[in-house]
C-alpha cells in the first residue's frame, strides 16, 4: 500500500519536474522570439551594406551584427580548437596513465580551475596581455588570440573531466579485450577506448562550445569591443554577440536598439545550435571512420 503511494508520488513529482523544465525552456524561447523575431532580417545582420560584399569581406559592416556573429564564431572555433586536444590528452592521462597520487593531486587542481569565476580568468588574460604588451610594445594588445586562450583555459577542466569519466566508464570487459589480443596501452586507448567513449566526449565538447559562445566576462577584459569590424587576424580586436547583448541591454538609446539585442540573442542561439549539429555530425563520422571503415 505504502509502496504504491510512494511510487505514484515519485512518478507525479518526476512528471512535474520535467514539465517545469520544458515549460521554462518554452517560456524563455517564446519570450525571446516574441521580443526579437520582428528584428530578424538581413538588415539586422548587414545594415545598409550589401550582404554579398559583407560576407566576402569586401565591404565593412558598420550598422549590423555580422561582425559580431563572425567574431563569436571565430572565437568559439579558436578556443575549442586550442582546448580540445589538450583537454582530451589530459583526460587520457588522468584515466589511463596517472598513478593514484597524481590523480588525486591533478583532480584537486582541475576542480579548483573549474571553480574559478570567469571574471578572474578574464583578469588573468588581461594581466597576460599587459605582460605581453610590455614584452612586445605596440604589437600585442587585447585581441582575439588572448580571448581564445583565456576561454580555452576556462573550458579545459570540463573537457578533461568529461574525457576522463567517459574513458573510466567503458565496460571492464571491453577495456580488457584489446590487451588480451596483444594491444599496447596506447593502441587500446586509440582503437577501443576513445571510439567507445566518443559520444560522452562530444557531450563535453558541446558544453565547452556553449560556454565559449556565451561568456562575456572573459572577453570584455581581453579583446571584445563595441566596434571593430570582422577580425582580420588573431591579434586584432573583435566584436562578439554576448558582448553586444550585454552593452545594448545596459545602455540602449531606443526601443529599437533593445529589440536588436533580442535579435542578437536569437542569432547567438542559432549559432550555438549550428555548432552542436556540426559536433554531432563529426562524432557520427568519426565513430564510423574509426570502427566500421
Amino acid at each position: 500500500m505504502i509502496n504504491k503511494t510512494l511510487e505514484r508520488s515519485v512518478i507525479v513529482l518526476s512528471w512535474a519536474a520535467a514539465s517545469i523544465l520544458v515549460m521554462s525552456v518554452a517560456i524563455l524561447l517564446g519570450f525571446l522570439f516574441a521580443k526579437g523575431l520582428g528584428t530578424l532580417s538581413l538588415k539586422l545582420l548587414f545594415g545598409s551594406t550589401p550582404p554579398l560584399a559583407a560576407i566576402t569581406l569586401r565591404q565593412q559592416v558598420f550598422d549590423g551584427l555580422f561582425p559580431a556573429v563572425a567574431g563569436t564564431f571565430l572565437l568559439v572555433i579558436c578556443s575549442t580548437i586550442t582546448a580540445i586536444p589538450i583537454g582530451i590528452a589530459g583526460g587520457i592521462f588522468m584515466a589511463e596513465y596517472a598513478g593514484i597520487r597524481q590523480k588525486a593531486f591533478f583532480s584537486l587542481l582541475f576542480d579548483i580551475l573549474a571553480g574559478i569565476p570567469s571574471i578572474i580568468i578574464g583578469l588573468a588574460g588581461l594581466s597576460l596581455t599587459i605582460f605581453l604588451h610590455r614584452l612586445f610594445p605596440g604589437r600585442l594588445g587585447p585581441s582575439l588570440m588572448i580571448s581564445a586562450l583565456s576561454l580555452a583555459l576556462l573550458v579545459l577542466p570540463y573537457l578533461i573531466r568529461s574525457t576522463q569519466n567517459a574513458l573510466e566508464s567503458v565496460d571492464p570487459l571491453i577495456r580488457l579485450t584489446a590487451p588480451a589480443l596483444g594491444a599496447s596501452r596506447i593502441q587500446n586507448v586509440v582503437k577501443v577506448l576513445l571510439p567507445n567513449s566518443m559520444a560522452d566526449i562530444i557531450g563535453g565538447i558541446i558544453l565547452a562550445v556553449g560556454r565559449c559562445a556565451e561568456d562575456t566576462a572573459v572577453i570584455m577584459l581581453t579583446g571584445a569591443v563595441a566596434v571593430a569590424g570582422v577580425p582580420h587576424d588573431p591579434l586584432s580586436q573583435y566584436e562578439a554577440l554576448p558582448f553586444y547583448i550585454y552593452y545594448i541591454s545596459s545602455q540602449y538609446g531606443s526601443p529599437d536598439e533593445l529589440a536588436s539585442g533580442y535579435g542578437a540573442a536569437i542569432l547567438l542561439l542559432a549559432l550555438c545550435t549550428c555548432l552542436l549539429i556540426f559536433a554531432f555530425v563529426i562524432q557520427k563520422r568519426l565513430v564510423t571512420l574509426l570502427l566500421y571503415r
Partner: peptide
C-alpha cells in the same frame, strides 16, 4: 598473442564482424 585467452562472456568489439576478427592482425 602466443598465450591467448577467450573469455567466458563473449566480448565482440563494437565494430563489424570482419573487423572484429581482423582486429588482432590490425594490432
Amino acid at each position: 598473442r602466443k598465450v591467448s585467452i577467450v573469455f567466458q562472456q563473449p566480448n565482440p568489439l563494437p565494430m563489424s564482424i570482419f573487423k572484429n576478427v581482423a582486429f588482432p592482425l590490425n594490432l
